[in-house]
């Protein structure tokens, strides 16, 4: 929901970044206010996944220019874990498997880390179980997944649902969903979208990084941005996504 009066969560100006000496982001500008839903679209290699990883603090990427502020704080002065504690969340395109660490243990550890950081009480395992049992309903996940190692042996759809479960537990201010729709069948897509929608409020915001318009049928964006060649080349409303679906990306590239 667009409200020009609401506070700015993220402000990115002329962001440039490289990986292994190759410049991928060549000047990205983006402002996200509380309550907004953004979609960033683009072909493979356009820089949209790089953008999400740079914001989350992935060590492979080096910021070479520009700035990003998160609620007024210099994002790039914060380590990845500090960004998470400040309320930034990245749902991974390829969630990692962590054998030997149970899902519930990870969720509780992450939750309590954030609680402590905010000067709030930690939850013991029983209290946390009450909380997590509510949260798993958001993604319609079988409680047996809580006892299993993080993502180990999960299907693609289960892994993506697990990311949204983490989002539900950690309640970030800004969630970046990096190709969360990839590899999902239509039922899983619906569940994931319903989960994300239920977490949206006027205090938080979501950025969906996606290739396809499909997800946007279920999580309706306020803004659609098109990335190409490491820049946002066009911004519009949700109808821009439909236009892209119908016409492809080439006409934009030609226009740019």
């Amino acid at each position: 929901m667009i409200n020009k009066e609401s506070r700015i969560l993220l402000e990115v100006k002329n962001l440039k970044a490289e990986v292994a000496g190759v410049e991928i982001l060549k000047g990205v500008d983006l402002t996200i206010r509380a309550g907004e839903v953004h979609a960033i679209m683009g072909i493979n290699g356009s820089g949209k996944s790089t953008f999400s990883k740079v914001l989350a603090g992935h060590p492979d990427y080096t910021v070479t220019g520009g700035s990003a502020t998160f609620e007024g704080r210099d994002l790039f002065a914060l380590a990845a874990e500090e960004r998470a504690r400040a309320g930034l969340f990245l749902a991974f395109q390829y969630p990692v498997e962590i054998p030997g660490v149970s899902n519930s243990a990870l969720l509780r550890l992450a939750y309590n880390t954030l609680q402590l950081d905010r000067g709030l009480e930690e939850l013991d395992p029983l209290e946390f179980d009450d909380l997590v049992q509510e949260k798993i309903k958001v993604v319609e996940m079988n409680p047996s997944f809580l006892g299993r190692s993080v993502n180990e042996g999960f299907s693609g759809g289960e892994k993506k649902r697990n990311e949204i479960l983490q989002m539900a537990v950690l309640e970030p201010k800004l969630a970046i969903l990096d190709e969360t729709d990839s590899g999902l069948d239509i039922d899983a897509l619906r569940i994931v979208a319903k989960g994300v929608n239920s977490l949206l409020s006027s205090d938080n915001a979501v950025v969906m990084v996606t290739h396809y318009q499909r997800l946007l049928n279920y999580i309706v964006p306020d803004y659609v941005h098109v990335m190409d060649g490491g820049r946002i080349v066009r911004t519009g409303g949700k109808e821009l996504a439909l236009e892209l679906e119908a016409r492809g990306y080439d006409w934009l590239r030609a226009a740019a």
């Binding site: 603090g57 990845a80 874990e81 998470a84 969340f89 990692v96 962590i98 983490q166 950690l170």
Partner: peptide
Amino acid sequence: DALFFLKSRGLTE
């Protein structure tokens, strides 16, 4: 990758 994932969930290095 696992290390970055855990840090992105708020855990220190």
